[in-house]
Simulated assay, not measured.
Amino acid sequence: MDLSAVQAALSDKSYSTLAPLCDDLLLQTASRGATTDEWPYAVHLLAHLYLNDLNSARFFWKSLSQEVKNARPELVAVWRIGQCLWNRDYAGVYTAVQGFEWGPDLADFITAFLESYRKRIFQLLTSAYSTISVPDVAHFMGMSEEDATNYAVENGWSLDASTKMLTVKKAKAQTNQKLDASKLQRLTECVFHLEH
């Protein structure tokens, strides 16, 4: 089985390409009847989590034999992260990541996953709150209160030190592009020609 494309994607840190790549390679391998003893199961599962594709991650996990799960502790550790994501246990994701000694194949990928996850959580907080306490941000972001405050302030939020409350800086709403009369005229003519 040739896993050079998977290794290249990991080396290039092209993590968003890994899930479809692994899916295709695994199907090709299975269709040839080749063994999958050396398959990078943990990388494959983490690739789906990296894309926030929880349904595919669950399907992949359920498709694995108990023998495969028992033989690969790193795979089980990645699945713990998936379970936390599925259950919306935001702080549990960080605990699951920090609770395992990741091998060299996954260490950089795990770091990239956490960065991506933190950005998603920060965007959720930005859209859901106008003000939020520092301890709550720290909880959701898996950081110390000081680090969470610094992260928020660096991203444009403001801190009221006396109340330990952060004021969220909302992203500016995109304005709709106005359609000029000439474009509207061309669209009308096109529709007219299609109807007649």
Rank of each mutant, 00 (worst) to 15 (best):
M1S: 08
S4A: 14
A8N: 07
L10G: 01
S14N: 12
S14D: 14
S14C: 03
Y15K: 07
T17F: 01
L18Y: 00
L21P: 02
L21T: 10
C22G: 05
C22W: 00
L25Y: 02
L25I: 10
L26V: 01
L26G: 03
L27A: 11
L27G: 06
L27E: 13
Q28W: 05
T29W: 03
T29N: 08
S31T: 12
G33K: 08
G33P: 09
A34I: 04
A34M: 07
T35N: 11
T36P: 01
W39Q: 00
P40I: 04
P40Y: 00
Y41D: 09
L46I: 10
L49R: 04
Y50T: 06
N52H: 13
N55G: 14
N55S: 13
S56H: 10
A57F: 01
A57Y: 01
A57V: 02
F59A: 14
K62C: 08
S63L: 10
S63V: 10
S65A: 09
V68A: 09
K69C: 02
R72L: 11
L75V: 01
L75R: 00
V76G: 06
V78E: 01
W79S: 04
W79L: 02
G82Y: 00
Q83L: 11
C84A: 14
W86P: 00
N87D: 14
R88W: 02
R88N: 11
D89G: 12
D89Y: 09
Y90M: 04
A91Q: 11
Y94T: 03
A96N: 03
A96S: 13
V97C: 04
V97A: 05
Q98P: 00
Q98F: 03
Q98Y: 02
G99P: 02
G99K: 03
F100N: 06
E101N: 11
W102A: 05
L106P: 06
A107M: 08
D108G: 12
F109S: 03
I110G: 05
I110C: 09
T111A: 10
E115S: 12
S116F: 03
R118I: 05
K119M: 04
R120H: 06
F122T: 03
Q123R: 13
L124Y: 08
A128R: 10
Y129I: 01
S130E: 13
I132H: 01
I132K: 00
S133A: 07
V134I: 06
P135F: 07
V137F: 00
V137A: 04
H139P: 00
H139S: 04
M141C: 05
M141Y: 02
S144P: 08
E146F: 12
N150M: 11
Y151V: 00
Y151G: 01
V153M: 08
V153S: 07
W157D: 02
D160G: 08
S162Y: 07
S162H: 09
S162F: 01
K164I: 03
M165N: 12
L166N: 05
V168R: 12
K169H: 08
A171M: 08
A173L: 11
A173S: 13
T175G: 04
K178F: 15
K178L: 15
D180V: 15
S182T: 14
S182A: 15
R186V: 15
L187P: 02
L187V: 05
T188A: 14
E189K: 10
E189N: 14
C190Q: 12
C190D: 06
F192Y: 14
H193L: 15
E195D: 12
H196Q: 14
H196S: 12
